[in-house]
């Protein structure tokens, strides 16, 4: 190979390798949506899914699934926040409604965002929310209180070995940080 050819051949190989590097850099970022998709398919981490539409389902009258609710406020969040019922027993396929209570104890408007999580994480695949305050941010004026509804149904094909689901909401103060972002928890 002449020196010229050598240089050309080096250059083309470098370009291809740089292509790999660029591709892998993008792949790093692609891992973010890929991870979300992966979570949605496998239920990793108990991220609940987006808004579902309830269609008349066959209700499994022989089975009761226990759902417990946990509500926590995070650091820097001056709200009171709790489920109106701690535990409900539901039949798979049935549409249910529970309510959460929130009150802003601060003397200014505060925007809150609830982040849902389900345990065991596989359960996230079978819990469908048709209406949830976690889809949007809430703005409460000073001293304002609110009852927030959450409507959901459990898929009838919930595996037999899951008899108990825990749904946790962690409430963040996003007045400064993420207000206005549509983070509609997936």
């Amino acid at each position: 190979m002449s020196e010229q050819e050598q240089k050309l051949s080096n250059k083309s190989l470098v370009m291809r390798l740089l292509g790999v590097v660029g591709g892998m850099f993008l792949f790093g970022f692609a891992l973010v949506p890929l991870y979300d998709v992966f979570c949605e398919i496998t239920g990793i981490n108990g991220k609940t899914r987006g808004q579902a539409i309830y269609q008349k389902k066959e209700i499994d009258h022989d089975r009761l699934v226990t759902i417990s609710f946990i509500a926590d406020v995070k650091r820097g969040m001056p709200w009171e926040f709790k489920p109106m019922e701690n535990v409900v027993k539901v039949k798979p396929g049935e549409l249910n409604e529970v309510r959460f209570y929130a009150r802003n104890r601060a003397n200014e408007d505060i925007v809150g965002q609830s982040v849902p999580s389900i345990s065991p994480s596989e359960g996230a695949l079978y819990l469908n929310k048709t209406e949830c305050f976690c889809f949007d941010q809430q703005r409460l004026a000073a001293g304002e209180e609110i009852e927030m509804p959450m409507k959901f149904y459990i898929d009838a094909d919930l595996p037999e070995d899951i008899s108990h689901l825990t749904l946790s909401y962690q409430l963040y103060n996003v007045t400064e940080a993420f207000a206005g972002d549509s983070v509609a928890a997936k």
């Binding site: 973010v32 982040v115 996003v174 993420f178």
Partner: peptide, 22 residues
């Protein structure tokens, strides 16, 4: 202002660990 790894903005701290260990 992104929130790849912050639950408050819809992110997930565990995602960081997946990327890091990849």
């Amino acid at each position: 202002g992104t929130s790849f790894f912050d639950a408050a903005g819809g992110g997930d701290p565990v995602l960081f660990q997946h990327i890091f260990w990849f």
